[in-house]
Nucleic acid binder design. Structure first.
Length: 296
DNA sequence: CAAGGCTCCTGATAGC
DNA sequence: TGCTATCAGGAGCCTT
């Protein structure tokens, strides 16, 4: 599942391979992939044709590609927004590569070089166009302005996040997954960061100390850094690495998916809790549950 | 307004 | 063999 490190790897790859190129045509656009674009597939294709991709930006798990306006006098500047969802990939491939079964859109370039393909098996991801608005040093699309800065953003305010979390009436894992409070953390890295910080995800946020939350933020950044190091090393060597796969980090996981395997710190078997149609993995010894431990 | 739950989707896998 | 049930889950949207 693409979370911040995977999306950042994709961003860097796209910056290397598609920034500065002019779009010739957009084809084979799957209706569900553009369900959040008001004008639908035909409008998306029409608006993209002829525009140049200026750069590739990211906040949390969202990517956007600011577009050069054909009309220099146009007030609004548009960007192509991409979200990978659960299974989305952005692939840069030679234009004659046969389309696979999950192709959702293909962007052809005026230079005739490799094209950009959006491939998404489970179709939770999508593409859309939106105008940029000012938000600090870097403009951000209007429709994702509600997404909080992520912990790798230099402008992320640690003290402010900690204070906000302690005022809320929820549990810490829910707070980590709330993209309007802190972005980029998904189910996998939430479990990994909580394991590192020795916190159970069901702990009420109001009962956590500032020191515990400082440690949790550090844990998130450590996990992100380790994943980026593992996944970001070879993106400019192969086109195929410009995608949303996270398999390279699987061997480094300490909690997520480790049911019944020994905790790397204390040897206790990792447990799983069912929660909201998904799973939480934790060490029952290192990460003491707030109440009586539930059955796994 | 905050919090929490529902839903979209498809392919792999398990169980009968 | 072939069917059904289960699981993976980001985030918009809806209800409470």
């Amino acid at each position: 599942m693409p979370e911040l490190p995977e999306v950042e790897t994709v961003r860097a790859g796209l910056q290397r391979w598609v920034a500065g190129r002019r779009i010739a045509a957009v084809e084979d656009v799957h209706a569900r992939a553009v369900r959040r674009h008001p004008g639908g597939a035909s409008d998306l294709a029409a608006q993209l044709a002829g525009r140049s991709i200026e750069s590739v930006q990211r906040r949390g798990k969202y990517l956007w590609l600011p577009l050069g306006a054909p009309d220099a006098l146009a007030a609004a500047r548009p960007a192509l927004i991409a979200h990978l969802g659960m299974s989305g990939q952005l692939l840069v491939l030679p234009a004659d590569t046969p389309p696979g079964p999950h192709l959702r859109a293909r962007i052809r370039f005026a230079d005739g070089g490799p094209e950009l393909r959006f491939v998404d098996q489970r179709t939770f991801g999508g593409l859309r166009l939106d105008d940029l608005t000012d938000d600090g040093p870097t403009p951000v699309p209007v429709s994702i302005a509600h997404i909080a800065r992520d912990p790798l953003d230099p402008l992320f305010d640690d003290a402010r996040w900690i204070a906000a979390v302690r005022r809320r009436h929820t549990t810490i894992k829910r707070a980590l997954l709330d993209q309007s409070s802190i972005s980029g953390v998904g189910n996998i890295y939430a479990d990994e960061a909580l394991w590192r910080a020795r916190l159970h995800g069901d702990r009420p946020t109001a009962g956590l100390t500032r020191a515990q939350l400082v440690e949790l933020l550090a844990a998130i950044r450590e996990v992100f850094a380790a994943a980026l190091l593992a996944g970001g090393t070879s993106f400019d060597a192969l086109y195929v690495n410009v995608n949303g796969q996270s398999g390279y980090f699987d061997r480094s996981l300490n909690a997520y998916g480790q049911l019944d395997r020994p905790c790397a710190r204390c040897g206790t078997s990792i447990r799983r809790l069912k929660w909201m149609n998904r799973s939480s993995y934790y060490c029952p010894s290192c990460q003491r549950p707030p109440r009586a431990p539930r059955a796994s």
